[in-house]
Design a binder for these strands. Structure first.
Lengths: 156, 156
DNA sequence: GCCAGTATTGGCATATTATGCCAATTTACA
DNA sequence: TGTAAATTGGCATAATATGCCAATACTGGC
């Protein structure tokens, strides 16, 4: 990954639908090698995909919650059942294994407080071995970036 | 927004670089009205943009932290200085205003623990009116979805 | 149930873009 | 400096986007 690859990644994070001609112009290459670099980055897994960014509110999900969860015990069954349910539940967008007071932190979206309550009661609390659930609601968004500040790297 | 718009949004979240022909096929429309719907969704702000999803590790950011911050006081100057610095700092990807114990929760990426320490010492702790900083590190990712489960809506 | 008015659709012609190939250039290294 | 490998740029062709127009499908009023 050299400086041109880094510029390609930056540009495609800023606008994932740039045409190859626009991209080539922006990174200072002719279209042909530019496209080849993009395909290489995709094949290498550096670029994992492309997605449309949508307005949560306009799509009916005005509520974002960050939820910290502790498990009573980390038996294989409990962990597997928990992570399987996470994967299946579309309203749970992210789930990280965390250091510190909680085992997991989830980012969850909901259509309403009632909707969120249903999710907690019917999906999360029913899982075996949940020790605690601590919810914080986001009442404002200061920043929401999906652009990793890529610079030149050695290796890969 | 009707059922076809919902399908368009779902499809473009799954793959933001679908060609209009592929998209039209998938949502059951001919290319012409399909493209018009996409442009309308973009103009209405429902689709806010497109982005490439990149591998954090491959780009040199193996570390993700979730950081909870409290301010000592919420004077206009402190809040403005804080949020301005957040906006300027590329390694801070997200920042939410939260209910509960902390005022803000940040998602921060770093190249190394040293890198994270530098960021905290030189950027965050230097801001006026910081009462506390509580960092949790993500040592695993169970789920990382950027697909909002859009269904049919009334209105807009 | 019918009719007028409006919005939406599908098809087509044209402009733009992507893609694969090859020769030329640059880079790496002994 | 010489040689091999990697990368680049240009070109021809295939695929795709875009704007326009007629045809179709919805809507509300009577």
């Amino acid at each position: 990954m050299d400086a041109i690859d880094a510029r390609i990644i930056r540009a495609l994070q800023r606008d994932g639908r740039l045409t190859n001609l626009e991209l080539a112009e922006e990174v200072g290459l002719s279209p042909s090698p530019c496209l080849r670099r993009v395909r290489n980055l995709e094949a290498a897994g550096v670029i994992q995909g492309y997605t449309a960014l949508v307005d949560q509110k306009a799509c009916g999900y005005p509520i974002t919650c960050l939820v910290r969860i502790r498990l009573a015990n980390h038996s294989q069954e409990n962990v597997q059942a928990f992570e399987k349910k996470i994967a299946e539940t579309e309203a749970i967008l992210d789930c990280y294994l965390m250091t510190g007071g909680a085992d997991y932190e989830l980012r969850i979206v909901a259509r309403s407080l009632d909707d969120y309550e249903q999710l907690v009661r019917h999906t999360i609390q029913k899982l075996p071995g949940i020790a605690s659930i601590e919810t914080s609601f986001a009442y404002g968004v200061v920043k929401k970036s999906r652009i990793l500040p890529v610079r030149v790297e050695k290796g890969a």
